[in-house]
Design a protein around this nucleic acid. Structure first.
Length: 872
RNA sequence: GCGGGCGUGAUGGAAUGGUAGACAUACGGGACUUAAAAUCCCGAGGGUGUACACCCGUGUGGGUUCGAGUCCCACCGCCCGCACCA
């Protein structure tokens, strides 16, 4: 259908039409046995809250552009979608609205799938699943049992973070500033029987492999490194001067054994067994109680003072015979790191110094900074933690910190206390095992049965899956599974005696720790088909929010290793490339009463001094700060509304323009209008071009300057947009496309004025390339344009256009000429001109001659084809 | 406190150590129109000047270099993450 296109492009008609066409052609259905090189692009799957938001649009558009581009480049592209569908909100909805979590969740999925489809994502929907599908979580139960068999899961009584509002356990990663990450309630400590994945067994591996993830943001790798928190040091025994109850020694962990000669006290945690034993002393008991109260109530830890209480006990100084050190219970020593006890060296640790100053303990410097005078050097208010040489340290004197650490470790290894070596070199990690038991209904049941005779028994394969019962009630707090009258009562698989099902379900982070692998064979009756999974994985490009930098990504990295160990995968890292995209932000608005107002309710006027009024009342509105879109601040823009008004392509284009993808993008009315204008401009350009293309086309005539220029521009743009898309630099790709569109618009006008077959040929080439470049980002518009240009097939199936390298190079170059580093003019010379010719040309410039004032230049720097710098 | 990142026109932002401000938005002027919208064309970092042109300019101050937004040092400011981790 070539010919005059006069009407405005109408996305409401075109978008559903092309979505249907792709659907019917099964365009995005991908086969595992396809022989082309695989490419796996994945965006973090959504929680089915009920509606998509602009953040989703941005996230999934980015992935879609990459997927469509890679497809055009000839790769077999896997681009699936699923639902992270278990979790508390469904239970909360059940309690508030008397609706079953299952029907609530699946209704939400239904609604959101429709929304996602409306933005034209090239998804293989045949692979869709929700983590709450029995088909999915039953495989997860198999994984759990396999991991149990491999010794990667344990059950132990442990101190847990208890969220008193959500009535469930939280992982350390889910406690933020002492509060539950969802409820915001202050977290309590409780002792419970817990299932835990042994993440810490992989601590070293997880740390070291970070170095191989060179396509991850440095920021995320650093965060994970810090979270794993490796520190190398010494476990050191201090002998009590006199035994106390069962205690004869105190074991500490230190990374600075080289400062042992500067030790002036021992401090133990309020949770240390010795502290508990000492709590028959009223002062100690009171202090422990106070510390516990502070521990959870204080949010600003750095303001908390270093406090302690003397226990009356002393230890023998390990390197100063006859000397002793006092033992304190102190509030700044943590039980769950190291051994729960430290030795204090105030001169070289700030916390120890604060503590020593408060309690009048000695401050003995034992590390001398380079160049400092040993007679003069003193520690006043600040501890010295830098490098230097040991002094006041007898046999360590003169050694640097590292050498002193080594020597003192050897020294303590030779000595013994309590019939064991006094010092043992040890590596400590901050990373803990991952407690996954949750006392909730809407999660994957842990497939284990508790029998009084046989202990914990895994559910046998033939009895899997353990399916969630549907007849549960939510009328009282706690775990509905536990309240269910019959579900938990079963016969022991081993002895057939009466037994109880585990009623805890798994943390929902388990569900998202392996879904990327499941997408490779989503309906297999094993968790994965290893051959298939190994072919697709690792995910080539994973895209999502940085808020998952630790939790989800670390757990997935652990799971990948666990699945390798249990034979479900044979790769080490799940995500080869990681991209963390920025948020979608929007201005906020408040009325005079201080109430938040939605952008839809206000009118904005003025250019530089923008003012806002209420759309209905006309009352003045205050324009506030730019914030992440959130319901509470009402600064949200509904994707449905945008798709209805402007179409999906416009929304997609705007999300990709302007802001670099890793940064926040500000949603503005002007921005979406601008995107919409460009879409119509492309449509108009195609209409004008299509009319010209009805005339006979010929070989482009490169001797025509304008023809040559437009062809160069088109080929250069194809090359640049390709590299930009591969690097996810969408904003740059957009800018390049604007330039090509601007160039083609002008060229079309001149071709209308003076049409030749050669120009028509060049126009055809340029416009069809433009449409192909636009296609990954505005796929619907591109299809309509492709058809209007009379091209056959769908543009989505057209291979990425080839670039003629000869057209990337100009025959002549414009070289700027600087004098003393300041640009004074430019010369145009044939590409690759010899330096002496370039120098002659440059020096003959009038501006250069004027600066030289008749003198000859000191030096002329010539970078071939780039720049000339004349030094006077 | 520790770690990471960032600072460029009115705004979002471009710029392998090589013409700073591409591209877009907002703005101003013009064309078209009875008018408006839409569309198209032109202008635009600051300053001096009639013009050719010149001076200043990427948070601040130094340095390396023929040449620095980019590299190095120090400082200021903002953002993010972790945080009594011994």
């Amino acid at each position: 259908m070539t010919g005059r296109v006069t009407e405005r492009y109408n996305p409401r008609v075109e978008e559903p039409r092309w979505q249907k066409a792709w659907d019917e052609a099964k365009t995005f259905v991908v086969r595992n046995d396809d022989q082309r090189e695989p490419y796996y692009v994945l965006e973090m799957f959504p929680y089915p809250s009920g509606r998509i938001h602009m953040g989703h649009v941005r996230n999934y558009t980015m992935g879609d552009v990459l997927a469509r581009y890679m497809r055009a480049k000839g790769r077999n592209v896997l681009h699936p979608m699923g639902w992270d569908a278990f979790g508390l909100p469904a239970e909360n909805a059940a309690m508030q609205n008397k609706v079953h979590p299952k029907s609530w969740t699946y209704a939400n999925i239904e609604a959101m799938r429709k929304q996602l489809k409306s933005i034209g994502l090239g998804i293989d929907w045949t692979r869709e699943f929700a983590t709450c599908d029995v088909e999915y979580y039953s495989q997860q139960q198999k994984l759990f049992i396999d991991m149990l068999r491999e010794g990667l899961v344990t059950r132990r009584k442990s101190k847990v973070n208890w969220d008193p509002v959500d009535m469930t356990v939280l992982a350390n990663e889910q406690v933020v500033d002492g509060r539950g990450w969802r409820s915001g309630a202050i977290v309590e400590q409780r002792e419970l029987n817990q299932w835990a994945f042994k993440v810490s067994e992989f601590a070293e591996e997880l740390l070291e492999a970070l170095d191989t993830l060179d396509q991850w943001p440095e920021k995320v790798r650093t965060m994970q490194r810090n979270w794993i928190g490796k520190s190398e040091g010494l476990r050191l025994l201090f002998e009590l001067s006199a035994p106390y109850k069962d205690f004869t020694s105190i074991e500490v962990f230190t990374t600075r054994p080289d400062t042992i000669f500067g030790a002036s006290f021992i401090a133990i945690s309020a949770d240390h067994p010795l502290a508990k034993a000492l709590s028959d002393q009223p002062a100690v008991a009171a202090f422990i109680a106070e510390t516990h109260r502070q521990g959870t109530a204080t949010e600003t830890i750095d303001k908390a003072e270093k406090l302690g209480v003397f226990t009356g006990l002393h230890v023998n100084h390990p390197v100063k015979p006859g000397a002793t050190l006092p033992v304190y219970v102190a509030n700044f020593v943590l039980m769950d790191y190291g051994t729960g006890a430290i030795f204090g060296c105030p001169a070289h640790d700030q916390r120890d110094l604060d503590f020593a100053r408060r309690y009048g303990l000695p401050v003995i410097p034992v590390v001398l900074p380079e160049g400092a005078d040993p007679e003069e050097f003193e520690v006043e208010a600040e501890a010295y933690t830098g490098p230097g040489r040991a002094y006041h340290s007898e046999f360590l004197d003169g050694l640097d910190v590292d050498a002193a650490k080594k020597k003192i470790a050897e020294y303590f290894a030779q000595r013994s206390v309590d019939n064991r070596p006094q010092g043992v070199v040890e590596t400590n990690y901050r990373l803990r095992d991952w407690g996954v038991s949750r006392q909730r209904y809407w999660g994957c049941p842990i497939p284990v049965i508790h029998c009084e005779n046989c202990g914990t028994v895994p559910v046998p394969d033939k009895d899997l899956p353990v399916v969630l019962p549907e007849d549960v009630t939510f009328d009282r707090p706690g775990n509905p599974l536990d309240h269910h009258p019959t579900w938990k009562h079963v016969a022991c698989p081993k002895c057939a005696g009466p037994a109880m099902r585990e009623t805890d379900t798994m943390d929902t982070f388990v569900d998202s720790s392996w879904y990327f692998a499941r997408f490779t064979a989503p309906h297999a009756d094993t968790p994965t088909i290893p051959g298939v999974a190994n072919n697709w994985l690792p995910v080539d490009q994973y895209i999502g929010g940085v808020e998952h930098a630790i939790l989800h990504l670390l757990y997935s990295r652990f799971f990948t290793r666990a699945m390798k160990k249990s034979g479900h995968l044979n790769i080490d890292e799940p995500f080869k490339g990681l991209f963390t995209q920025g948020m979608v932000v929007h201005e906020t608005y408040k009325d005079q009463a201080g109430e938040w107002l939605s952008p839809a309710d206000i009118l904005i006027s003025g250019g530089d001094n923008r003012t806002a009024v209420h759309a209905k009342t006309g009352a003045a509105v205050e324009i506030g700060s730019i914030e992440k879109m959130s319901k509470s601040k009402k600064n949200v823009v509904d994707p449905d509304e945008i798709v209805r008004t402007y179409g999906a392509d416009t929304a997609r284009w705007f999300m990709l323009s302007d802001s670099p993808p890793e940064r926040d993008v500000q949603w503005t009315e002007a921005g979406i209008e601008g995107a919409s204008r460009f879409l119509q401009r492309v449509w108009k350009l195609v209409g004008d071009a299509a009319e010209l293309l009805a005339q006979p086309a010929g070989e482009p005539d490169m001797s025509d300057a304008e023809t040559a220029a437009i062809r160069r521009l088109a080929h250069r743009t194809v090359a640049n947009v390709g590299t930009d898309l591969e690097g996810l630099r969408f904003n740059r790709a957009v800018a390049q496309i604007y330039e090509l569109a601007n160039g083609l618009t002008k060229f079309t006008a001149t071709t209308v004025a003076a049409s030749t077959p050669g120009r028509v040929g060049a126009l055809d080439e340029g416009v069809s390339r433009l449409i192909q470049l636009v296609a990954p980002m505005m796929p619907h518009l591109a299809e309509t344009c492709w058809a209007a240009l009379g091209k056959s097939g769908l543009v989505v199936d057209a291979p990425w256009p080839a670039v003629d390298p000869a057209l990337l190079m100009d025959s002549s170059v414009v070289i700027p000429v600087q004098v003393n580093g300041k640009r004074r003019g430019e010369i145009t010379v044939p590409k690759g001109s010899a330096n002496d010719l370039v120098e002659k040309e440059a020096l003959s410039l009038e501006a250069v001659a004027r600066m030289l004032e008749g003198k000859s230049p000191k030096k002329v720097v010539i970078v071939p084809d780039r720049i000339v710098n004349v030094v006077v």
